[in-house]
Structures are given as C-alpha cells and as structure tokens.
C-alpha cells in the first residue's frame, strides 16, 4: 500500500485535482449560459409570463439538438472550434469548451423543470401586485425555485464528471485520462481501480453535500 502510494500517489492526486477543477469550472460556465437559457425557454412558453412562440421554438430546438449529440462525438466535432477559442483542444483547458457546450442545454432543461414547479398561484400574486416580467423572474420564480435549482447543481457536476472522464480519452487530463493511460494501455488494473474509487468518492461527497445545501436553503421545510 505504502509502495503504491509512493509510486502513484502524486499522479492520482494531480488527476483528482484536475478532474475536480475541470468539472467545477465547466459546471460554473454551464450555469452562466444555461441559467438564462432555461429562464428564456420557460417564460416564452405559451401560458407563461412572456409568451413568444418563435423564440421558444428556436431555443427549444437548440436545447434539444445540444442534448441529443453524444458527448464523445461532440468532443471530436468541436475540436477545431475549441482550438480556435482557447488555443488547444487537449488538456484541462481544451476539455472545458466541449464540456460547457454539452452541459449548457442540460442545465437549461433542469432549470426549466425547476421553474415550472413554481405554483401558478404565486405568479398570479405577482401579476396582481403589478409586477413586471423582470420582477416576476427575479423576485418570484427564481427565489421560489431556488431549492430545486440547487438540486440540479450536483446533478450537473456528476454528469460532467462522467463526461470529463471521456474527455480523458483525448488527453484532457484528470482521472479518466489516468484510467485510460495506465489501466487500458498498460494493464495496470490497480491504478484503474484507484481512479474508480476516487470518482465514486467525489460523486458521493458532491451528491450528499449538494443535497444538504439545497435542503438547508429550502424554507418550506419546517425546522
């Protein structure tokens, strides 16, 4: 065991850090783009607060197309674009671009689902007090959907962690990269096993930490 740690410890540590940084950054950017997109997709729906069919249909398409392309294909397909944007298509930096593009429509959909859970009665209250569309979004829809939106964050992170491991296949760094290089090409099963254990641990921590945080922020739960 000590021998194993001496030999692979720093490699696995670096891989873990790379995976987490890559996934966290991708999650952050996915929300930067996905949150507004999700809001727009929701409020432009037929009976919502800013009905606009053309916008809704176009955004719906974008989201659906984005969601239907398998990540591994998107990754390869985007390489020239990635290179043009961040100068490289490999490494942590190169992986973030396809990760963000893959996760943005995913985030938009889960944000939409959360916003649609907000009771119609509350939107009605907002209309009755003369709130503008912007006020309804920022003072009613988002705050009321907040606990549900927060539940989506670990979900996105975990999905992206899986994607980032795939990105490892094209040399994106991180635990997926290590698993493929050592486990697949060099038949060092123990290293591959170690990466699996590490990924499972990360997922557990993010999932339970995320749920705890979302619950803590939900004022509908009696305390």
């Amino acid at each position: 065991m000590a021998e194993f740690i001496a030999e692979y410890g720093s490699l696995l540590l670096q891989g873990t850090i790379d995976s987490i940084v890559m996934t966290a950054l991708a999650t952050l950017f996915a929300y930067v783009f996905g949150l507004p997109l999700g809001i727009l997709v929701t409020i432009t729906q037929e009976h919502s607060i800013l009905p606009c069919k053309p916008v809704n249909v176009v955004l719906g398409w974008i989201v659906n197309i984005g969601r239907s392309i398998p990540f591994i294909i998107l990754l390869v397909f985007l390489m020239p674009f990635t290179r043009a944007l961040v100068g490289t298509a490999t490494g942590v930096r190169g992986a973030i671009v396809p990760l963000v593009i893959a996760a943005t429509p995913f985030v938009a959909r889960i944000v939409e689902t959360s916003l649609l859970e907000v009771e119609a009665g509350l939107i009605e209250v907002a209309h009755a007090v003369g709130a503008t569309v912007k006020q309804i979004v920022f003072k009613v829809m988002l705050p009321e959907a907040k606990p549900s939106i927060l539940v989506g964050v670990p979900l996105t992170f975990i999905t992206l962690l899986g994607y980032s491991a795939m990105a490892g296949a094209v040399g994106a760094g991180g635990l997926g990269d290590i698993a493929i290089r050592y486990g697949y090409y060099r038949y060092q099963d123990i290293v591959m096993f170690a990466t699996i254990v590490l990924i499972v641990i990360i997922v557990q921590i993010i999932q339970s930490g995320g749920m705890w945080f979302a619950k803590k922020n939900d004022k509908r739960i009696r305390k």
């Binding site: 009771e119 009665g121 509350l122 009605e124 209250v125 907002a126 209309h127 009755a128 007090v129 003369g130 709130a131 006020q135 003072k139 009613v140 705050p143 009321e144 907040k146 606990p147 939900d218 004022k219 509908r220």
Partner: peptide
Amino acid sequence: RRNIGMVFQRFNLLMQRTVKDNVAFPLEI
C-alpha cells in the same frame, strides 16, 4: 393593479420569504 389588493383561497404566500418579506413584496414591486 398596484392600487388593488387581492386575497386568495389558498393564501399564495411566497414560501421562501419570511412573513415580513411577504408583506413587503408589493412595496418592493
């Protein structure tokens, strides 16, 4: 609408706001 109050059967309070912030809601608007 800002000059007409409305009360509903199912109360329709904002569940993520405190009592005082619920009352303050129309004023914020």
